[in-house]
């Protein structure tokens, strides 16, 4: 089940923390963020949590980050 996290306006580490929790509970997660630091943090999280990641700047200053867990159930991520 895909889940959307609206992390706009939240400062680090909250976007990455919310994304980490969500990807532990869902195979697909979309995270909305509004700063480059959050994009970098979620990117590092994805590398650590074995997720595919694609980042799109939907409007200037707003990024939509799609996370897809690879290997799904056999690779649980601690929330």
């Amino acid at each position: 089940m895909a889940k959307t996290i609206d992390a706009r306006g939240l400062s680090c580490p909250q976007p990455a923390l919310l994304a980490k929790k969500a990807i532990g509970e869902n195979a697909e997660v979309t995270v909305l963020v509004d700063n480059g630091t959050a994009v970098e943090n979620v990117r590092r999280l994805a590398a650590k949590a074995a997720c595919d990641i694609s980042v799109t700047e939907t409007t200037p200053g707003i990024w939509e980050i799609a996370l897809v867990r690879t290997g799904a159930a056999d690779r649980p991520v601690r929330p």
Partner: peptide
């Protein structure tokens, strides 16, 4: 953040 990220995310960045 250096110490926080290690504790929260096990990240060394």
């Amino acid at each position: 953040g250096a110490i926080r990220d290690l504790l929260l995310f096990r990240q060394m960045h």
